[in-house]
Design a protein around this nucleic acid. Structure first.
Length: 594
RNA sequence: GUCCCGGUAGCUCAGCUGGAUAGAGCAGCCGCCUCCUAAGCGGCAGGUCGGAGGUUCGAAUCCUCUCCGGGACGCCA
């Protein structure tokens, strides 16, 4: 619809260029918007006003010229020039009903661009460290990432979802070590569980499980652990905060070293695998229950095992992007505009997390995506320059990487902010939220805000199943339409051939409003995808539901005469279809009854 | 100190990339079920778009400065 209008106006402008009224080389930006008031017609354009400088006439005169140059057509019934120089366009009635035919033909595909007709895009999201269950903070990334993937796919792109599993590095060692210590406690060794190890109950359970499986096979002389604790106690005696913190970190590193030497590679792996396997299985199950399914679970460890990290480091060394300082290898990221250079290999020979990231992003680009979208917590924004710098250094197109930041939701319970920490094990889990609030409400709630917007998540409100939650409002519109059709069949009213109804009977105010909203849907999907803003769907769906509820309250569908009734039911059916299509994109169900 | 995000109705937030009289939901007030779902509808009230400059036919939207709030700046991941 908009496209057809644009074509007509483009022809008019080309004509004016041919007549040298508009300088032929001048690039004209043609934009239509839907009018807010019906006195302004269906569409309006400001194109005449943008041309004042190029032509040197006043905008109303230019508008005259453009209107006069529009080729004859069946679409536009009237134009007028209003205000400072808007051109208001009134469309033919028939053109307004066309959308119903389109919906009846395209059904589930209405509003969607042809599948796989555009670019190949990867969306990497959540990617939480597998050190514990997902919490509600991850929920936002999950809901946003998945909705974004769906909307990009709806807009015709080929989309793959990927979860980057950080199954390598120090955090994983700490995790494995935590499980081991809990296992020792299960074997009734008395030891102080470090405050900076993972505290969660799930770690205690794993320790207990492993005791059942392996008895005391992996127990050691507890004095060795005591020695570490004593050393720690001594070094924090009267120390300042900084020193204390670092002493704790050193202490846990000593525990890791102890565990690795005492248990050997094989023994340590038992604790490591037990921890990561069960946590990862839990995360997968959790996300799947949230309606989020991944194409790829990408292991960081695999980048070590297949040598890709070393290869990337080697390439950077060869090209002189790395230098050695104080025993560590540094990446010269300042050469690409980063604030400072970054360590890639620590003085102990261990590659940093950043080293994995360099190899990971190279791998992504090598897999042939046109665009790689990373959804990161906003606390990671400082990493963007260095990752992009590394891509440049490796000769990759850094514009293929698009990092979108998600602000963490701030949780409130009884009006109080909730503090959360993964290591301390104090958090509201995503699973808990799902079970208490329901997937639909949670996803709708999360997807309601722009990603980078700060968000207050009121748990009481979300959990209370109250009517305040807008998801019910939209779903209710769908359920109501289903109910109308159920009633129709109970009354033996035929609803078979609605697409053949006389749509010209749909000329009431509510009906015009609905038709115009339905027509807007494809454009909305397109702009939501273009701007990475799935939340636009939420607002659209609310508008559509509002328009329908008003219509519903003002109309008796089934008691009307047949031609009128069929036209109205056709409209209801179309609204229902678009509600379903829109809800699907944000990952929310459309119940037939509520 | 540097960087990111935000400031729009009492509260939570939209605002279609610069357009015509700034919009929803909740909270408040007044109405609507003998009738297809009242998880609904209609109405009233509520605003110096944080502030000051600038860009132009036109600014909540773009630029600069400034105030307030949140967050990030490790040989952590």
């Amino acid at each position: 619809m908009k496209q057809q209008l644009e074509d007509l106006f483009t022809q008019a402008i080309d004509q004016l260029k041919a007549d040298s009224i508009i300088p032929p080389e001048h690039e004209v930006r043609l934009m239509f918007e839907r009018t807010r008031q019906k006195e302004h017609g269906d569409f309006a354009t400001n194109v005449a006003m943008t041309l004042t400088k190029a032509i040197g006439k006043n905008p109303r005169d230019i508008a005259q010229l453009i209107v006069a140059a529009i080729p004859s057509n069946a679409l536009i019934t009237e134009t007028n020039i209003a205000g400072p120089g808007f051109i208001n366009v009134f469309l033919a009635q028939d053109a307004r009903y066309e959308v119903l035919n389109t919906i009846f033909v395209e059904k589930d595909a209405y509003g969607l661009a042809p599948e796989n007709s555009k670019r190949k895009i990867m969306v990497e999201f959540v990617s939480a460290n597998p050190t514990g269950p997902l919490h509600v903070g991850h929920g936002r990334g999950a809901a946003y990432g998945d909705a974004l993937a769906r909307v990009l796919s709806a807009a015709g792109n080929t989309v793959e979802r990927e979860y980057y599993v950080n199954d390598a590095g120090r955090q994983m060692d700490i995790l494995a070590c935590s499980v081991w210590l809990r296992y020792l406690q299960a074997n009734e060794l008395s030891l102080t569980f470090p405050s900076n190890a993972y505290q969660g109950d799930y770690i205690v359970e794993m320790g207990a499980d492993l005791k059942i499986q392996h008895g005391n096979e992996y127990c050691i002389d507890e004095s060795k652990i005591d020695k570490i604790s004593e050393h720690l106690a001594a070094s924090i005696q009267g120390a300042d905060e900084e020193t204390t913190k670092s002493a704790y970190e050193k202490s846990i590193d000593q525990l890791i070293t102890l565990a690795k030497t005492e248990l050997g590679e094989g023994g340590f792996t038992i604790f490591f695998r037990r921890a990561i396997d069960s946590i990862l299985a839990d995360i997968k199950d959790d996300l799947s229950g949230f309606g989020v399914d991944y194409d790829t679970w990408f292991s960081e460890k695999s980048l070590f095992d297949n040598g890709k990290i070393m290869a990337a480091i080697e390439q950077l060394k060869q090209s002189d992007h790395l230098y050695e300082k104080a025993g560590a290898w540094w990446f010269r990221s300042t050469a690409f505009g980063d604030e400072k250079d970054r360590v890639v290999v620590r003085d102990n020979g261990q590659p940093t997390y950043f080293a994995s990231d360099i190899a990971y992003h190279k791998d992504k680009v090598d897999r042939g995506f046109d665009e790689c979208i990373n959804i990161w917590g906003s606390d990671h924004h400082g990493y963007i320059p260095r990752v992009k710098a590394s891509m440049q250094a490796l000769g990759l197109d850094e514009n293929k990487l698009n990092v979108l930041l998600v602000q963490f939701a701030v949780l409130y319970r009884s009006g109080e902010k909730i503090k959360m920490s993964t290591r301390s094990g104090k958090f509201v889990t995503l699973r808990e939220l799902r079970e208490e609030v329901g997937v639909d409400a949670a996803r709708f709630f999360y997807a309601q805000r722009k990603s980078e917007q700060h968000m207050d998540f009121d748990l009481d409100l979300a959990k209370s199943q109250s009517n305040d939650n807008p998801v019910y409002y939209v779903q209710y519109a769908h359920a109501r339409i289903c109910s109308i059709f159920r009633q129709a069949s109970e009354r033996s009213i035929v609803v078979e051939n609605l697409s053949a109804a006389d749509f010209s009977l749909l000329n009431g105010e509510h009906e015009s409003k609905l038709l115009s909203l339905l027509q807007r849907f494809p454009e909305l999907v397109e702009t939501a995808a273009k701007n990475y803003e799935p939340h636009q769907l939420n607002y659209y769906l609310r508008d559509l539901a509002t328009a329908f509820h008003s219509y519903y309250n003002s109309t008796k569908f089934l008691d009307s005469d047949q031609p009128q009734r069929e036209a109205m039911l056709a409209l209801c059916s179309a609204v229902k279809q678009v509600l379903v299509n829109g809800l699907t994109i944000i990952g929310v169900s459309a119940p037939e009854k509520m």
